[in-house]
């Protein structure tokens, strides 16, 4: 296998083995997302507002806030014991490090989201099964953009003492186009609209995914350097 790909695979393998042993990332993200949904279910009167109107916002708040926890932890693990230095000393392209961490973050967050979806369906009494494929596409696009930008910014924030505060401050404003896109699309899907009605939003979200990945490839060298 090409060295670049095998280095990416090695980073993903290492993150998976670590997570399987500790279950730190998944459990923290899952419990946080569940708590967010529970808080909203008790604060929103579903007999007055429609679940399909408030649901998309609540779902993505749960995904993004819990995902931020995961992103913070992801690069902190690399900083512990100077592991990031070990990675930087390896003859690996910095983009291999970025893509390895991006794929790990993306898979962990997606798995958590797949566990949260059935609970969301039960709590809000929404039938997601009939809209499952379009919804999964929207979740894919949103999670990819979030992880693409989040992985870059968490590597930047990991060098700061105030990283837990800095990551959301840096991340959320830049993520606004994606958040607007995925919340709108999720709302339209729950309202029963077909995918063809939301091609503009799909295009916008996919474009920002590409922009975030492109910017990350161009800047990761400088960000990882001390």
């Amino acid at each position: 296998m090409n060295l670049f790909l095998s280095q990416i695979t090695a980073i993903v393998w290492k993150d998976f083995v670590t997570e399987l042993k500790t279950r730190e990332l998944f459990s923290a993200m899952f419990i946080f997302a569940l708590l967010v949904i529970l808080i909203f279910i008790f604060s929103v009167n579903l007999s007055i507002v429609k679940a399909s109107e408030v649901g998309p916002g609540i779902l993505w708040v749960a995904f993004l806030f819990s995902g931020t926890l995961g992103l913070n932890r992801s690069f902190v693990l690399e900083k512990e014991n100077g592991c990031l230095m070990g990675l930087m000393l390896a003859p690996a392209d910095r983009t291999a490090i970025y893509f390895g961490k991006l794929i790990s973050n993306f898979v962990f967050l997606t798995v958590m989201e797949l566990f949260i979806l059935p609970l969301f369906m039960i709590f809000f009494n929404i039938d997601l099964l009939e809209h499952l494929l379009p919804l999964l596409l929207v979740i894919f696009l949103g999670t990819l953009g979030f992880c693409a930008l989040g992985t870059l910014l968490s590597s930047l924030a990991s060098n700061l003492k105030t990283r837990e505060i800095m990551l959301p401050i840096l991340l959320y404003p830049l993520l606004v186009p994606i958040v607007i896109g995925v919340v709108r699309m999720t709302g339209q899907i729950l309202a029963g609209e077909p995918l063809s009605e939301m091609m503009n939003w799909i295009g916008l979200t996919a474009s920002f995914d590409i922009i975030y990945i492109g910017v990350s490839i161009m800047t990761i060298d400088h960000i990882l350097e001390e």
Binding site: A10, N81, C83
Partner: peptide, 30 residues
Amino acid sequence: REIGVISHSPALYADLTPMENLIFFGKMYG
């Protein structure tokens, strides 16, 4: 590829075993 570094920090993943750590770095070095 030509250098090895030992510093104050061990640069090892605490939750992996020595074998897992070294296999990982071995893959990173190709």
